[in-house]
Design a protein around this nucleic acid. Structure first.
Lengths: 220, 220
DNA sequence: CAACAAATTTAGGTCACCCTAAAAATATTT
DNA sequence: AAATATTTTTAGGGTGACCTAAATTTGTTG
């Protein structure tokens, strides 16, 4: 069965919107996520249901079928492997790679994907700290929290981001908050929930709640 | 201006059919080359002419415009760089890479193309011996001939192939006729124009005219 | 629970790309 | 040069993926 690029993008979007809590996605939310219109989503939903890639009852939202989830995971695998390639081998910055990986994730060749994986040394995480599904679609689970959940005095290491927009990633880099950076929480200001951090055991830095809610860390 | 994947493939096809002698391509030849129908080609010709990528007068054939040629050369550049990447870095065989490169050549990011070029060490030729256009679309000229044109007693080095189908490339590999191989012409049998070669200064090998006409070599 | 608001689907249209079959233009042969 | 063959274009359709505007269903609230 041929799965088109647009279909792959829908499956990927449904996947990321459903794993974030809710098990069903609505038409409007999906439309917004894909920068398209609700009617187009309904259109596509019929095609995907026809191909047994999603479960769909009109007015009731969509849910991935097992086949649909498999495809979504393979796309995500390819996306994250290519992002790793771009950063590790071609010296791209982590905030420059998303759009290119959006294109590369649709290249069809299992052999290519697996060779790339091998070439990169079977990485478990991409440059944003997101886990890379293996060739069977198995995703490594990680004991991570968002920085805003850290307690005063605790230390943590930056593992990734919730928001991977270029402006946010550039901001992080300007503050030396890159992947792997170690930090500890010095103080929380109740007024606006901003946080004072000690970074790399030397500098201190204050960040807003918006930032702390979008930074994924692992307790040390 | 947005140039679609299908349009890029037409430009590439027109380019390779025109540089091979004739300066104009006809509808049927192009249709066959692209595995499509003549009417579809006419259809596309109108769109490409509309975008000033080709010169087109009905019934008179097509010719690339300067803008069209620039695009064709960039696609070919990307195709050959990706083929080099697959062979050099991911250990693909030279006869396995064509279909994958057909997909990768449409990835849009000048930065990616240039970084890839750098990563590969600015190669001048791809694994099939075809020259890789540089970022300005300049193609290295090479003083090559097909093996069938070699004279008795002359030596040469394999630079590439005219036919890059997997069966032919696999045949070559089985006979140790890989890129860079040095050979000299021992004898030509007038009966069927088959050739007796000495390969790598040790083995001798007899090849048919079909093979000798599809092997590109450089005199030594 | 009726009335309104929000979410979703349907109806009908566009665009890129491809198709078949028929018509028209060009090339070749007698 | 007329007849035939070949090449190319036009006419009319189909599909995937999108759109706007109008209907419909579902959810919320007075």
């Amino acid at each position: 069965m041929i799965i088109h690029k647009a279909e792959e993008n829908y499956l990927k979007a449904i996947y990321s919107l459903t794993t974030a809590g809710n098990s069903e996605v609505g038409t409007n939310i999906l439309a917004e996520h894909l920068s398209t219109k609700a009617s187009s989503v309904t259109d596509m939903a019929k095609r995907l249901a026809e191909k047994n890639l999603i479960h769909y009852t009109p007015y009731k939202g969509f849910r991935l079928s097992d086949a649909g989830r498999d495809i979504a995971l393979q796309i995500i695998r390819k996306h994250r492997l290519w992002e790793s390639f771009l950063v590790e081998k071609l010296s791209f910055k982590w905030y420059e790679v998303h759009e290119i990986a959006e294109q590369l994730e649709h290249i069809q060749s299992e052999m290519l994907t697996n060779r790339l994986d091998e070439f990169l040394g079977y990485p478990k995480f991409d440059p944003h700290g997101d886990p890379i599904p293996d060739k069977n679609g198995v995703v490594a689970k990680l004991n991570t929290i968002v920085l805003s959940e850290l307690e005063i005095g605790e230390s943590a290491q930056i593992m990734g981001v919730k928001d991977s927009s270029a402006p946010f990633l550039q901001y992080l880099e300007s503050q030396q908050l890159v992947l792997g950076t170690r930090l500890s929480l010095v103080e929380r200001f109740p007024f606006d929930q901003s946080l004072k951090l000690e970074v790399n055991r030397q500098d201190t830095l204050t960040i807003s709640q918006l930032v702390s809610k979008n930074l994924v860390v692992q307790r040390l």
